[in-house]
Design a protein around this nucleic acid. Structure first.
Lengths: 266, 266
DNA sequence: CGCAATTTTGACGTAGTTCAACACGTGTGG
DNA sequence: CCACACGTGTTGAACTACGTCAAAATTGCG
C-alpha cells in the first residue's frame, strides 16, 4: 500500500490508494448476485449467462495521437432511456447527472468502485439520470433481461437479488440522511468528505484518505455550492488542520471534528 | 374518524382532501406483498400470517379528559433498535428523526399514507431513525420474521418483495434527486411542496393541494431552514400567487413556476 | 515551452440567519 | 370569568456567509 516514492503527483497516490485497481469482488455491492447458487443440492454458476465483467468505459487508446479528441464512450447510459442493465463500478468513478430543460447539467450522485449504478431504474425500466465516466473507468454489467430469465427458474437467485436490493435501500437512505437539511458550506463539505471516505473504505483500505478523482466543479455542483466557495472551504479546512489537500487526494486529519461539523445545526 | 365539529379550518379541509381516511390498498407501496399469490396452480393468501392491518398510533381516547396528557405511543419505533417489522402508513403522517449526540432532533424524512417506513433497515436489521406519529395516525405492519418464513416456501412471494424493493429504490433515489444540491430557501421549499404533493396525489386525489399536517418547525428542520425563513418564503410564495395557504393546507396555484423554482440553479 | 482548463484569491452585494418582539389559539388555574 | 403560560407562526433590523464578477495562479498536456 505504501510506495517508497515521494512525488507529489497523483499517479503515485492513486497507486498508494489502490485507485485504478479494480475492486475485489467480495467488496462489491453486486456480489450478492454474482456468486454461484446452491439449488437442488448442486452448485450452479449462472452468472456467465447475465454477467459481463470489467468493461472499460472511456478507455483512451494509449499510444495514438487521438488522445484529445473528445472521447465519446464516457457515457455509460443516458437519462430517460430504457433500462437494459445495471452496473457496478470496478475502477474509476462515475458521475450521475440530470439535465434541466435550460440545458444545465446537475450532478445528482457519484459512484465509486464497488457501488451500483442504475438499480433504481428497475421499477420504471427507465434510467433516471445519465451515468458518465470520469477518466478511465470500468464496470461490471448485469443484463436485466437475462438475469430475469435465470431468476424465474432459480428462486435462490431471487433471494440474492433481495439481499442486494435491501442493502441498496440502506445505502440510499443513509446517503439521503447525510445530506438532507444541510445548508452551510462547512457542514456540507464535511458530510461529503466523511460520506465518500466511508464509501471508499473497503476499496482504498483507508478510513482517512481518499482520492476524489472528480473535479472541484463537479463536487460543487453536487453539493449546490459555487466552486469558489468550495475552494475557500477546502482551504479553510486545511488551514485549520482538519484535512490535508494534495490535488484530488484528501487526507482527513481530524475525523471527529469533521463529524461534528457535518452534524452541526447552525 | 370524522368529528361532528364545525371548526373553521383544518378539519373541514382534511375531510375535503380525504386526509385521515385510510389509503386504498391498491395505492399503497406495501401492496405488492399484501396480495394473494398464485402458486402451484392455486391462489394463496399468506398475508394473514405476517400482516397486521390498520394499527392506530397515537390514537387519543376521544371522550376522556385525558386528551392532553402527553400521549406516549406516538413512537412507532426508535433509532438503533432491532428491526422487527416494516410499516406502511395508512393515515396521518410520520416524521423520521435522528438524534445527534448533543440531543438535537433532526427530521430526516416524512412519510404520508401509502408510503413505507423501515424497509431500509432490512440490511442491517436495525432501524436507522425513530419514526414518530404526527397527530392521529395508523399503519399496517409486516412482521419480518413471519414474512421470511413464508417467503422461503413460496418463491412467488419473493418476486413480490423484489417488486416492492425495486419501487422503493426508485422512490428513494427520486427523493434524493429532489433535494440534493439545493441551497436557496426558495428552491428548497418549491421542491418540497412539489415532492410532497406528488407523493400524496393518489391519496388526496389532487395534484395541486395538500395537507402538510406537520408543523412549520418540522418542515424547516427537514429542509435545513430556520422557521422564520420558511415562514417568509411561504408568505412570499403566497404574495406572488404561487400558492394559497390555509393553515397546514397548501394549494399549489402555479405548479409550473414552482417546478422552475425547484430546478433553479442560483 | 506555451496554451487551455482548472482552481484559487480578492472585493463587493445579496440572501439568509440571528435575535428580539409580537400575534394568535389553546389549555390551566385562580 | 380572566390572567397566564406555552406552542406555533409572523415580522423587523442588524449581522454574516455565500454568491457574483473579475483576475491571478496553478495544473495538465501537447
Amino acid at each position: 500500500m505504501t510506495t517508497g516514492k515521494k512525488l507529489a503527483n497523483n499517479v503515485v497516490y492513486q497507486q498508494a490508494l489502490g485507485q485504478h485497481h479494480t475492486i475485489a469482488c467480495e467488496n462489491c455491492s453486486m456480489n450478492a448476485i454474482c456468486q454461484p447458487v446452491e439449488a437442488d443440492g448442486q452448485t450452479l454458476d449462472l452468472s456467465k449467462n447475465y454477467l459481463n465483467k470489467k468493461i472499460p468505459v472511456n478507455a483512451q487508446a494509449p499510444d495514438t495521437s487521438q488522445r484529445h479528441t473528445q472521447v465519446k464512450n464516457r457515457i455509460l447510459f443516458e437519462e430517460n432511456t430504457p433500462l437494459t442493465s445495471i452496473y457496478a463500478v470496478c475502477s474509476g468513478v462515475f458521475k450521475l447527472c440530470v439535465t434541466s430543460k435550460d440545458g444545465y447539467e446537475k450532478v445528482v450522485g457519484l459512484r465509486y468502485p464497488g457501488e451500483l449504478i442504475g438499480e433504481d431504474a428497475l421499477f420504471l425500466e427507465n434510467y433516471n439520470y445519465s451515468a458518465i465516466a470520469i477518466g478511465q473507468s470500468s464496470v461490471c454489467e448485469v443484463s436485466i433481461e437475462q438475469f430475469s430469465s435465470c431468476g424465474k427458474l432459480v428462486p435462490e437467485l431471487q433471494q440474492n437479488l433481495i439481499a442486494l436490493l435491501s442493502k441498496q435501500s440502506y445505502v440510499r437512505q443513509s446517503n439521503f440522511q447525510s445530506f438532507i437539511g444541510k445548508k452551510s458550506a462547512d457542514s456540507l463539505l464535511a458530510a461529503f468528505l466523511i460520506n465518500i471516505t466511508k464509501r471508499n473504505e473497503a476499496y482504498t483500505g483507508s478510513s482517512s484518505k481518499l482520492n476524489l478523482l472528480v473535479s472541484r466543479n463537479d463536487v460543487a455542483n453536487f453539493l449546490g455550492l459555487r466552486r469558489e466557495t468550495l475552494s475557500r472551504v477546502f482551504a479553510k479546512f486545511q488551514k485549520e488542520g482538519l484535512i490535508k489537500i494534495e490535488g484530488k487526494i484528501i487526507h482527513l486529519l481530524q475525523k471527529e471534528l469533521l463529524c461534528d461539523l457535518a452534524n452541526f445545526h447552525s
